[in-house]
């Protein structure tokens, strides 16, 4: 498992340029993922890898093709300081786990353990625990169903328990 580390404000145009988004063939997206940011990413990435970013990951357009492209490329989880809101919902809705941990110092040689339910990430190499934001139950339920399509196929409607 490799960590791919990028900076702040990685926008959806960089994750998947608009010119590739108009397709139903979602497997075609992986060939262009992050190509304007890191042209070698698609060669380096292996199934099960983790993408680590700074602030505001996924800002910009509403294109769901952005998390789909990352998932298709094999990314298992995205860790970021925080996410843009539409990307956040889209990732959960297509079954890509993401976790928001605030400012961090995760390095490429960090060995990390993720506890999505608790909302934390442990960097065992540098012995640092990042207590992030716990997902609301509805998002955990959607992720457990591998996305909103399966969730709604099962439940037919939304279920929300309030927790403020």
């Amino acid at each position: 498992m490799t960590l791919h580390i990028y900076g702040d404000n990685i926008d959806t145009d960089r994750i998947i340029p608009g010119k590739y988004t108009k397709t139903l063939d979602i497997s075609s997206l992986a060939a262009h993922v992050l190509e304007d940011l890191d042209p070698e990413f698609k060669e380096k990435v292996q199934p099960g890898d983790i993408l680590v970013a700074g602030k505001n990951f996924g800002c910009g357009s509403s294109r769901e093709q952005a998390p789909i492209a990352l998932k298709q490329a094999g990314i298992k989880t995205v860790i970021a300081e925080d996410f843009a809101r539409i990307f956040f919902r889209n990732a959960i809705n297509i079954g890509l786990p993401i976790i928001e941990i605030g400012p961090h110092n995760i390095k490429t040689d960090s060995a990390i353990e993720i506890d999505l339910a608790q909302g934390h990430v442990m960097d065992t190499t540098y012995n640092k625990l990042y207590q992030g934001t716990q997902l609301p139950q509805i998002m955990m339920d959607i992720l457990s169903a591998d996305g909103l399509v399966n969730y709604l196929r099962t439940h037919q409607k939304f279920k929300v328990e309030n927790q403020v």
Binding site: S62, R63, E64, I86, R89, N90, N93, I94, G147, L148, V149, L152, K157, F158
Partner: peptide, 13 residues
């Protein structure tokens, strides 16, 4: 603004 799957769910429910 939302993405496609949220939109689908809203159109349905």
């Amino acid at each position: 603004g939302v993405g496609s799957t949220d939109l689908a769910a809203t159109m349905m429910t």
